[in-house]
Design a protein around this nucleic acid. Structure first.
Lengths: 208, 208
DNA sequence: TAGATTGTTAATCGATTAACAATC
DNA sequence: TAGATTGTTAATCGATTAACAATC
């Protein structure tokens, strides 16, 4: 189980592998071969084996991969049991769709706070939690130590919040704002840029 | 301007390049060097020049890249003026956030129809358009020829709709459902999988 | 044991970086 | 002309694919 170095390309595929194994487990499939899995994923058996080898998880020669085992092992590598404390800022359509559509707990997080700037929304209950005013963000962070923040505000506000939150100890950001967030050592950022995704779809249609 | 072959990695960066040049144009910046641009993007001058060289667009030695020109040229390559006809299916939180947050016209598309299954929503007006019942999808497509579909339904429905829409001539899909859509020749798909993105963020926190 | 399938090594392919001649 | 900066070539690095020995 030496995972001193795992290629970036492998890590990029890790969430999808994990999702497939969880689904297979749900469907009571007990084992699967690299060939079958590659078929489902639209990739090659070689890549599947190379990836799992790099991740340090083991199949069994002549048998394949044990679904429950892989599900557990990949979950460990990802750290889904850590349930990092998360807050969300911005409860417009985007914020609300994240709140309603994502199962935080199954994906390694626990939601502990919801923030907005709009006075009329403060106190409204979402997911069993009141919307708090953004002005109380500092105090909230000093008391509750959120580790991850979901940025669902306009771009310029997201960029400001980013630095503010870093100084408050937040280590990870899920950025839906479309704003360009400067990378800082010690902070990790996942961007969801819908405009860029739409642009790329246009390009793909254009060349076909 | 030979763009017989453009590397995938370059194409993956194309939307972001385009966005940066559009922003610079808005800010009345007239020219920029690969070094300055690389600084803004968090990459290397070498990569910037290599990419633009592959795309067939030209800077000027000793000067840099003309912002307005690049904006125009990259827009041409992407095909933003095509304004492909798009429909959206599903007007839950996710669908509504796409409808309210995306400027279709600026990114190569034109929205021509909104669909849902829920009776109580039919007729409600969003973005100046009535929500139509999904049962009228076939007829609508045969009359209006949508080229792209945004899937904001639950996964299983998205997968069904995908094949239905392909048979109706739809060529591109923006898949927010989280469902795994089988690739078909002649169809292009851009997936937005929020669960996978969250999983990867968890992993990144876990290793830090 | 025989058959199946992994894990790993080697070969190929693609992407990034470095360096510099070309040229505006 | 001199200075700046591109475009392109070559070198390095990383990812994918192919092949097969190891082994359950």
């Amino acid at each position: 189980m030496d995972r001193s170095y795992i290629p970036d390309a492998t890590l990029g595929r890790l969430p999808r592998y994990y999702r497939f194994f969880c689904d297979l487990k749900e469907k009571k499939v007990s084992k699967i071969s690299s060939t079958q899995l590659a078929e489902m994923l639209g990739t090659t058996p070689s890549q599947v084996r190379q990836d799992f080898s790099a991740l340090g998880s083991f199949g069994q020669q002549g048998y394949g991969y044990n679904v429950a085992q892989m599900c557990h092992d990949l979950g460990q590598i990802i750290g889904v049991d850590n349930h990092y404390r998360a807050i969300i800022i911005g409860t417009g359509n985007l914020g609300r769709s994240v709140l309603s559509g994502i199962q935080f707990y199954n994906h390694g997080f626990r939601l502990i706070g919801i923030f907005d700037r709009k006075e009329s929304l403060i106190g409204q209950v979402l997911k069993g939690m009141p919307i708090r005013h953004i002005d109380g963000l500092d105090e909230f962070c000093r008391e509750n130590f959120p580790q991850m923040a979901i940025l669902c505000t306009p771009p310029s506000e997201a960029i400001r919040l980013y630095d503010q939150l870093i100084s408050l100890g937040v280590k990870a950001f899920w950025n839906f704002s479309g704003g360009e967030i400067p990378r800082r050592p010690g902070a990790v950022v996942n961007d969801i840029n819908l405009n860029d995704s739409l642009t790329s779809l246009c390009y793909k249609m254009n060349i076909k």
